[in-house]
Design a protein around this nucleic acid. Structure first.
Length: 419
DNA sequence: TGCTTCACG
DNA sequence: ACGTACGTGAAGCAA
């Protein structure tokens, strides 16, 4: 990995972690405000729907059972109702009833859709809607705890985890709307655009991807144009969807089998897409080979700031164990460098906010960090000015071979700030 | 306590 | 014949 063309501050990953630690402690102390009334209201609404769905599930199955028990669910579906199991994965304890498996037999019986809806709603209720209002402080704020002991250098968030607050699905946005700015304040949400792909483009020197980012192309459409031998303009939604999966898969060391599962297509087709991708992106192919080679030779891989990940089983004779660590070798330098860039941005932003706040009666504060995103709270009248500081801090912290772009929004709640 | 499932990036 | 895309944390069940 040759990183001569990357302009970066002269600092090690260890020093980055030391400097970010006190910033995390400040963010934990600040907390973020939760609209508990809105959460409880949504809880009541979804709970009512769950009861209705449960009644229908009981009707179809013929008796009451614990819908949250995968064991009982499998018994009902595959033994009592005799639904087909050929296509489904097995777990250590039986046949899987995970959502992606049930999706395969969705049209075999109307009970499946009900189960999927029930799962979605009970997840939201039991993990977010019910617990969160119980643990706010007297100002209605939630305080997470950040951790740094991860394999790649990412941060963790726990008790509560504020890095997995729903955003997708029918009600994800509703939940994010309950994370609100304090009185007289706004939330600023800023996230890096395609940071991991920009990093892999830079450290692999892949010409095609670097050009695409320099031109400001939509990277997934660009990939689609490449693998389907067409032009940017002619790319269909479906082609873009497939290309997006290919782009994500690349960073994880995905196999044709994995891509075929993710897209519900044949292995042959998946293999063809991947092969075609590597014909065009030879720099990416070289990067992958280099990382796997290095891991075998040195026993570790590292980020551009020198954080190492040791891979003690990379030479295992059990093939899937060795292959699993080879994928970690491919992914960690990318995911880890992205984590370091966000931490550096936080260090830069903290410094600027401290000085900015000196001439202000109400301080602006970083509240959350979510892997490639920062959430900041600022007095309404300062919000636009602070947003600019956030954007600059994020974009100017390193100079890759491609531009780094932070997209940001301002709003009264987290959902609004993301658009 | 370990497993399964599922929320996020 | 094996397994198959990386990194996390939390809830509920089963033993």
């Amino acid at each position: 990995m040759n990183i001569e063309n990357i302009k970066k501050p002269n600092i090690t990953s260890e020093r980055i972690n030391q400097k970010v630690m006190p910033i995390l402690r400040k963010m934990e102390k600040s907390g973020i405000k939760l609209d508990c009334d809105a959460v409880r209201k949504l809880d009541r609404k979804l709970s009512k729907r769950v009861s209705q769905i449960e009644e229908q599930i009981v009707k179809f199955s013929g008796h009451e059972f614990n819908i949250s028990s995968p064991t009982q669910m499998a018994e009902v579906l595959f033994v009592e109702m005799k639904l087909p199991t050929e296509d489904l994965k097995k777990t250590k304890t039986g046949i899987s009833t995970a959502a992606n498996e049930l999706n395969k037999i969705k049209d075999k019986h109307p009970i499946i859709v009900l189960i999927l809806e029930n799962r979605e709603l009970s997840k939201l209720i039991s993990t977010y809607l019910r617990p969160l209002p119980m643990i706010v402080d007297k100002s209605s704020r939630l305080h997470t705890t950040y951790g740094m002991e991860t394999a790649t250098g990412r941060l963790t968030s726990s008790e509560p985890n504020l890095q997995n607050i729903p955003i997708k699905g029918k009600f994800g946005g509703e939940i994010r709307k309950a994370f609100i700015a304090s009185e007289g304040m706004k939330l600023i949400a800023a996230d890096y655009s395609q940071i991991e792909l920009r990093i892999i483009a830079s450290i692999s020197h892949d010409t095609a991807m670097i050009d695409a980012f320099k031109r400001g192309d939509d990277i997934h459409s660009k990939t689609a144009a490449e693998i389907f031998n067409t032009t940017l303009k002619k790319v269909t939604r479906d082609q873009r969807r497939i290309a997006k999966a290919v782009n994500f898969g690349i960073v994880y060391g995905q196999t044709p089998y994995g891509l075929s599962q993710a897209l519900n297509i044949g292995i042959d087709k998946a293999a063809e897409y991947i092969l075609h991708y590597f014909e065009i992106h030879q720099g990416i192919r070289r990067y992958i080979n280099e990382m796997v080679e290095k891991a075998h030779k040195d026993g570790y891989v590292e980020t551009i700031f020198g954080a190492k990940r040791f891979l003690p089983n990379i030479d295992s004779r059990i093939r899937y164990i060795a292959e699993s660590e080879e994928r970690m070798a491919i992914n960690m330098p990318v995911q880890g460098t992205a984590a370091e860039i966000l931490k550096l941005a936080m260090i830069a932003l903290d410094k600027r906010l401290v000085s900015y706040n000196k001439k202000k009666p109400v301080p602006s504060k970083m509240l959350l960090t979510v892997h490639d995103e920062l959430v900041v709270e600022a007095p309404s009248e300062d919000a636009q000015e602070v947003a600019k500081i956030v954007k600059e801090s994020m974009e100017e912290v390193v100079t890759l071979e491609v531009p780094i772009i932070a997209e940001l929004g301002v709003g009264d709640n987290w959902q609004e700030a993301k658009s």
